[in-house]
Each structure stands twice: as C-alpha cells, then as structure tokens.
C-alpha cells in the first residue's frame, strides 16, 4: 500500500516527513517514529485527547481536527494540542439547581461571547457550539445539553475563543443538570430499585443460582424472547 506514489509530505511541528497518504495524522506520527504519550487516547474519536491544529501549505486557513479521525494530506503543517487549560469550575451536583443564575455563578464569561462563531468553526464534531452557549446564556439547559451532546471535550473551541470560554465545561454542566433535574423521573426504575431493596427477588435469585447446569441449559435454550 505504501508505494512511492502514494506518499505525501507532512510537517510535524515544522519538520518534514514523507508518509503513506492513506494514514491518519496519528498513525502518520507513529510511522514517522513518534511514540505517543500525550495527544493519544481512545484512537477512535471519542475521548478528545488528540486535538490537532493544521494548515495546508499555501493556504492561510488554520484548521482543527482529531488526529485519529483525520487523513493526512500533502503539505499539511501539523501541531498537536495535547493539553489545553480549560477552566472547569467545581460544584456539588446535589446542591445546585437548574436555574439561570447557576450559569451566571459558575461560568459568567459565557455572557462575554462576542458572537464571532470561531468555536463552531473549530469544532471537530461539527457541533453548533456558539448556539449551545447561547442556550446556556438563556438558561435553556435542555437545549444546550442536546446541542452539545456529541462533544468529546477536545478543547479546540476554547483554543479559538476570544472571550476565554471553556465551552465543553458549559455543555457538561448543562447535561448533568438536564439528566438529574430536568428530564422526567423514571417511575419503573424507582420501583424496581425499591423491590430489590425490599428483598423481593432474593429467594428467586437464590433458587436460580442453585440449579444444576443441565437445568439452566434447558431454561436458557427454551426461554421466550420479547419481540
């Protein structure tokens, strides 16, 4: 696969390397010889460890991406952002309430948003980041939670924000408030936990634990399966 004509030139922290063009930025770094410690996590686009900034030679636009999810291109100047000092405020989830004031208290800088939309342009997940910050400003936590749900906290938005907002932390707060306080309570869950705590399944589970394997096989192989 990596024959000469498929090779591309990339620049890792300014230094040139020739790598197979079908690699991702992450695997290209390893091909070049890097043993990654920082800037590498799940390698499948879920953890946000590999936030990366790049520019294509001859193009002035700075782009952001996840190194594990982005294929290399000819002339790519690459710098990883293995750590970004996002500013997470601490709180007791049991104490706070989903009121408009809570955002004002914990993340007041969101009200300094100048509407430049750089966060949205930088988002490696193509989320409408500025919109979810707007929802947070208005105390519309459920909408903020929904809009920010696919965030992997890579921090590319925060890197680009002139107002110093830690967007992933705002989304996270909105989601926890939504999950705990705003989403409707689950009656069947509450009931089942109570039944178990009252010991209603104790003897049944004991019985099934004591059954010989042959009987368990019979039970398993003939059990009815919900359509």
């Amino acid at each position: 696969m990596s024959n000469e004509k498929n090779m591309v030139n990339i620049y890792l922290y300014g230094k040139q390397y020739k790598v197979p063009g079908d690699l991702t930025i992450m695997t290209a770094m390893e091909y070049a010889g890097y043993t990654l410690k920082r800037g590498c996590g799940c390698r499948h686009g879920f953890c946000g460890a590999c936030a990366t900034i790049y520019r294509i030679k001859g193009d002035n636009e700075l782009k952001t991406c996840l190194a594990c999810q982005t294929q290399v291109q000819e002339g790519m100047y690459i710098a990883s952002i293995p750590f970004f000092p996002t500013d997470k405020r601490t709180y007791d989830i049991g104490e706070i309430k989903p009121t408009e004031q809570i955002m004002m208290e914990l993340y007041p800088e969101i009200y300094s948003c100048i509407g430049c939309n750089a966060c949205t342009k930088a988002c490696t997940q193509s989320l409408n980041v500025m919109q979810y910050i707007a929802y947070a400003q208005r105390g519309e936590f459920e909408k903020c939670a929904e809009e920010s749900f696919d965030c992997v906290s890579c921090g590319c938005c925060s890197v680009r924000c002139p107002a110093g907002i830690s967007h992933p932390m705002v989304g996270l707060l909105a989601r926890r408030l939504t999950g705990k306080y705003i989403a409707p309570e689950t009656e069947h869950l509450k009931n089942r936990v109570e039944e178990i705590n009252k010991g209603e399944f104790d003897s049944l589970i004991e019985q099934v634990m004591q059954k010989p394997i042959t009987e368990m096989k019979e039970l398993y192989n003939t059990r009815d399966i919900e359509k």
Binding site: I93, G179, K180, A183, T186, V193
Partner: peptide, 21 residues
Amino acid sequence: PDAIKWLNDLGVMFDKDADGR
C-alpha cells in the same frame, strides 16, 4: 437497577420518552 439510578442521579442523560420511561 441501582447502578442506573445512581448514574441518573449524577446527571447521566439516558434516552427516555416524554413520560420518563
């Protein structure tokens, strides 16, 4: 079930319908 409830109480957003099921 208690594990799900614990997570829900921490603020994990499970997929629910309008009635909370």
